[in-house]
């Protein structure tokens, strides 16, 4: 019996380690590819082997691709990086604020029309995003906002999913008695929200900020249809252009992909606890 469970345990670790290796291999391939010279690229799939320290051919490695991304004026990668940071930050902060306020109103106030708004929020959850592409594009065109950051950001600031998540989080984390006590002490409604409600739902705040930031960072179809000027393109659109134009310059393409995913990875590793908790809270408790 003992040996059998030991065998099962060893098999578990073996399978998990194998799966982890398969998961990490594309990342390793990407990192290595981004730093290999053109000649070394096809010589080895990961690091170029040679007679240098650690058995690596250090002359086969280069910062040339990374440098070219930011210095070649036809690539404008620095501008795209800034565009992505701007677009994802503004979108995520405003969408989170809008969702938290809406969720708070539905969770902690009794008013005429609450049932109707709640039904709208739940109904909107089942509308698939592609359905809205054509009519939203026509609307943005009519508003004169094509090829502007406003046309890209504003339509994404009313996330029904976020309002639903914050409604649940505030119901669980913000006691009505506390709100009433603060009001008795003369706390205004706006101060009440920013100084009591928001701090109490901090975990959801962090999770939703991260979810919306990553969503905006990785969004391709939105900027692809709304924007036309290359100087406004975020990384997702810029990398698609690099692939179209320099598709065979593998080193450059991998360096561009690496630069595009590192910020998101760093953010996630910093905030992963809150992120995973927020991700599953709606599914498992609900």
């Amino acid at each position: 019996m003992k040996t059998r469970s030991q065998l099962a345990s060893a098999a578990t670790y073996l399978i998990l380690a194998g799966a982890a290796l398969l998961t990490l291999a594309p990342f390793a391939y990407l990192v290595c590819g981004a730093f290999k010279t053109r000649d070394a690229f096809f010589a080895a799939h990961f690091l170029p082997r040679g007679s240098g320290p650690l058995g690596i051919d250090w002359n086969g490695l280069t910062l040339e691709h990374l440098a070219r991304l930011f210095t070649d004026p036809s690539l404008r990668f620095g501008v795209s990086l800034l565009n992505s940071v701007f677009y994802a930050s503004v979108s995520s902060v405003l969408a989170t604020l809008c969702a938290a306020m809406g969720g708070y109103a539905l969770a902690r106030f009794a008013f005429r029309g609450r049932g109707f708004v709640t039904a709208l929020v739940l109904g909107a959850l089942i509308v698939p995003a592609p359905l809205l592409l054509a009519p939203t594009y026509a609307l943005i065109h009519r508003l004169g906002l094509l090829d502007t950051f406003a046309g890209l950001i504003v339509p994404g600031l009313a996330p029904a999913f976020g309002v639903y998540l914050f409604r649940q989080a505030i119901r669980n984390a913000v006691p009505t008695d506390l709100l009433e006590a603060a009001r008795m002490d003369g706390c205004g409604e706006v101060r009440l929200f920013f100084e009591i409600v928001l701090p109490l739902c901090r975990p959801m705040l962090g999770a939703f900020l991260l979810i919306t930031f990553i969503g905006a960072w990785n969004n391709f179809i939105g900027p692809q249809i709304i924007l036309q000027s290359p100087e406004r393109f975020p990384l997702a659109v810029a990398i698609a252009q690099v692939k179209g134009v320099y598709g065979t310059d593998y080193g450059l393409l991998m360096a561009g992909t690496l630069v595009s995913i590192v910020p998101v990875m760093a953010l996630f590793i910093g905030l992963q606890r809150e992120f995973i908790a927020g991700l599953t809270s709606g599914a498992v408790k609900g």
Binding site: V117, A158, A160, R183
Partner: peptide
């Protein structure tokens, strides 16, 4: 009730306006 009548609508306003313009309207116009 110990909060002003407008309080919930103050918090709901940004969502309701944006939802109306960029969700409900495109959905119906589609």
């Amino acid at each position: 009730r110990i909060y002003p009548l407008w309080a919930p609508w103050l918090f709901l306003a940004p969502f309701v306006v944006l939802f109306g313009v960029f969700m409900a309207y495109p959905l119906i116009s589609s």
